[in-house]
């Protein structure tokens, strides 16, 4: 995706990463490494009674190897060796996922705000 290019500087996030809905700061600039992997994530925007099993392919993530690098972030309970990532303040999500076996976290570029 070419839109992502503008957000990358030397392979890392050029800008600070914020929640797309609230002012919560997720990641400081230069702390995530860009990876163009594709992963299946459930949709973020659901009505409370919506079908929660719907997933979509999401491409492009900021990869972070130490969870304490994040400024503010919520981690769901474990689902098949992974945890979903949500905003620590308004809990919108999933904005990415955390792999329990590799300890890597992935924040989807398309599900956060950069500024």
């Amino acid at each position: 995706m070419s839109a992502d290019e503008a957000l990358i500087a030397e392979g890392k996030n050029k800008f600070t990463v914020y929640c797309s809905r609230c002012p919560s700061k997720i990641l400081n600039s230069g702390m995530g490494v860009y990876t163009d992997m594709t992963y299946n994530l459930p949709y973020m925007h659901h009505k409370a009674d919506g079908d929660s099993t719907n997933v979509e392919d999401v491409k492009g993530y900021w990869q972070v190897s130490d969870i304490y690098t994040f400024e503010n972030l919520g981690f769901s309970n474990t689902v098949e060796n992974m945890k979903y990532l949500i905003c620590a303040d308004c809990e919108i999500g999933p904005i990415g996922w955390h792999d329990l076996s590799t300890k890597q976290s992935y924040v989807a570029l398309s599900r956060v705000k950069h500024s």
Binding site: H46, Y68, N72, N77, Y84, G93
Partner: peptide, 18 residues
């Protein structure tokens, strides 16, 4: 509308706050 039933169902394990 923003909180997915999905996340509410799974529940949260922990949060990191700075």
């Amino acid at each position: 509308a923003f909180t997915t039933t999905f996340i509410s169902t799974i529940g949260i394990d922990f949060k990191i706050k700075t």
